[in-house]
Each structure stands twice: as structure tokens, then as C-alpha cells.
Design a protein around this nucleic acid. Sequence first.
DNA 1: GGATAGTAGAGAGTGTCGCTATCCATTCAG
DNA 2: CTGAATGGATAGCGACACTCTCTACTATCC
Lengths: 213, 213
Amino acid sequence: MRVGELSKRSGVAVPTIKYYLREGLLPAGVLTSPNQAHYDDEHLRRLRLVRALIDVGGLSIASVREVLSAIDTRDDSLHNKLGAVQEAISQPGAVELDPQAVADVQAFFARHGQSECVDVTESNVTHMLAAALSSARSVGHDQIRDLLDPYLEGLKIIAQADLEYVVRHTSPDDVIEAMVVGTLIGDTVIKALRRLAHAQVSSEVIGGGAAQG
Amino acid sequence: MRVGELSKRSGVAVPTIKYYLREGLLPAGVLTSPNQAHYDDEHLRRLRLVRALIDVGGLSIASVREVLSAIDTRDDSLHNKLGAVQEAISQPGAVELDPQAVADVQAFFARHGQSECVDVTESNVTHMLAAALSSARSVGHDQIRDLLDPYLEGLKIIAQADLEYVVRHTSPDDVIEAMVVGTLIGDTVIKALRRLAHAQVSSEVIGGGAAQG
DNA sequence: GGATAGTAGAGAGTGTCGCTATCCATTCAG
DNA sequence: CTGAATGGATAGCGACACTCTCTACTATCC
């Protein structure tokens, strides 16, 4: 197909597709003449992935590029790929870390047998966690650290479901892509479900009519 | 205190504080002369809240304004306030909804006794959920709907912890602010913990050394 | 074969967002 | 008395994600 059809089938405007091609988010089509290129279903699939990362994941163009390059790397272990992808989809957040929050994170790791993690800033993920606790402290909610353990309890169930999903529904080639999509879309789903749960709790505890919907 | 001290104590630059004053995110100080105003601890607290909403919650200035106005409304029920705040902290996402995804959401509500929710677009939260499932479908992962029930299972534990936190650690006046902070910071914490859980699962299942760093 | 529409590629322009810089008259601190 | 800080207002900036414009083609329908 040519760019016009790619646009129609994906719902992405032609100039935007050209922009993504320039930015390296989409591989170039096969040139059949100096001003004609041919795109296939793989391009369509990739374009939809890019839009999902941007729309649902809220990723920047630069982060999308990182994620795609991790997905496309063929000469690396699955575990390393997952690590690279996780870094790309986890923006660190511009908060300076509170030492107490860092200590809380380290204590949490120690409680759960991950004592090797001494440097919280070494990964975007642990930095994100410490930054969140730092912010909580700055607004007077340092007791939020007490939520880490019950949260972990709930997330074990969720991560287990994630694992089963990946095992059941993806071929080995697509594991990393499924992890990215599942992680980002899962984040959004979890966000929404948690809010619905809050609304339900609020209507049960406080009263006030039907819950949220 | 004057603006310089407010700046020092909050870590926010003076011009930025002036900008927030103009934008209505921060109430004006008490003028003691035509060009002197006094700010108190309440201003400091509010400023830190604004920064937390922006840095950790990733909210826009406009959303912050909505949240604050919901917090400050005194003539509304707690339940309604929570609803308003939830709308403000839940951006709808620019994805067009897939009918099948909408049906999946409705089926989910029906399964859990919330059959009144017929219009998914009526709330940002349900729209967010439907948009996430739509995106999943567009990239070939429509089986993600099977995750809704296990996710809810995990989130019941998490929401229960949230409720206990609010009951234990906040005075009735601060419930809404605690809900906002707890929801947004909790989102980030949950995101991070889920990634850590994934990394751990990945190292257990696939192998590859220490989990995530 | 000629009009019309579509295309590749590339640079410049657009709109939004969240600040940041500059200015002024005034006023406070040393 | 003097220099730094302040309130208030307006203009500017840099990043971001497109979007527009242009040129030189090519494909296709009549």
C-alpha cells in the first residue's frame, strides 16, 4: 500500500506519518520509484503501536524511539531487553530525592530480600518510587511508605495475571512488544479501576448515591 | 513571610510563584503595602501540593486548577467532591473508542453489579478504561479484557489499604486533599512496584541475574 | 495525451505549554 | 541613604508534536 492507504487504515494523517518516518519511528517503505514507496502490514502494525505508546502510554517521541529500538534489538537477552524497555517507559520525574524517602525504599527492598539495591538512582524505576515518596513527604504524607507492603500484596496478583497473559497470548517473538503494550495499557487500566474502586468505597462509606458511573 | 522566603522554603523559583499567583493556583498574599505581601504556612503547603500534582501526578496547570477548586469547594458533599477531583485527575486520552471495547467494559460492570453504567463516555474514568481497551485491540491485544477481573482482585487489596490510610492519617478537613495526593502518588508507586514485580518475574522465569538493579 | 490527484523528501511554520526575563515604581533592610 | 527585594504586568523563550509548504516527480482516469 502507499502512504495514503496507510493513513486511512491507521487513522493517522499523512503528514504525521511522514514526520514519524523522519523521526525514525517507522521504517521507510520500499521505493518503487523516486517518489513512490510501498508499505506493508508490518508498517501498519508498527504505526498502531507507535500511536498506542503515545496516546495510552503518554510517551514522548524520544521515549517511543527508545522502546522501539529495544524491541528491535535482536542480539540481547530477553531479560536485558525488558530492562531497557522498562527504563524507556519509566520517566524519572523532576523531583529531588528526600534522604528519608530513599531510606524507606531501601528498607522496603531489604524487607523483600532485594538488599543488593543500594543505589536508588541507578534505575528510572527505583528513582520513580523514591521520587513519589519524596513528594508525599513534602506535602506532609510521609506515612505513605506504610502502603508499600499492601500495594505489593495486590501487585503480586496483578503481576501474576500479567505473566499468565504473556505466556498464553504471545509467541516468543512478540514477548517484548506484549510486555510494553501490556505494561503501558495495564497502567492505564489499573489507574481507572483503582479510581472506580475508590468511588465505590466512597459511596459505601460516605454514602451519596450511585458509585461514579 | 515574603515571596523570597516562600521560594526558598518550597524550592520553587520566585517568577514561577508569581506565575502560579497569576494563574490562580495560589491565593494572593495579604498586602501590607502596595508592593508588599505576606504569605503564611498555608501558602507554602498549597505551593507544595501544586508542585506534587505537577511533578508526580503529571497534571497540567488547568487540571491543577480544577483539582484545587474541587478541594476548596465547601458547599458540596464529600462524595461529589471526590467525583469532581477524580474527573480532574483523569485525562480522557485522545483515542476513539472501539465498540467491542465499550461492550467489554459494560460486561465488566455488569459482572460486578454496576449495571447502571450504560454510557462509558459520561465519565473520564470509564472513558479512560474503554480507551485503554480500544488501544489494546488496535495493536492486536484484545485478550487484555481477560485481565480486568484479576486486576480488580489485586486492586481491591490496594483500595482497601488506601481507605485505611485515609481513615487513619487524615483529619476530616483534609480527606479530599489526601485522596488526591494518595491517588496520584499511589499511581506512581503502583507503576513502579508493578515494574519491579515484572523484573523479578522476568529474572525468575527467564533467568538473567539480579532483578532490575 | 492531457488533466488531476497522489507521492517523496525536506525545511519552515504553528500552536500550546510551562515557565522565564524584563521592566517599573515602590519599599524595606542595613 | 542606598541597594536589594517586591508586586504587578507584559513579552519572550525553548521544548514538543505536529502541520504546512514547496519542488519535482509519478500514477491514473478520461
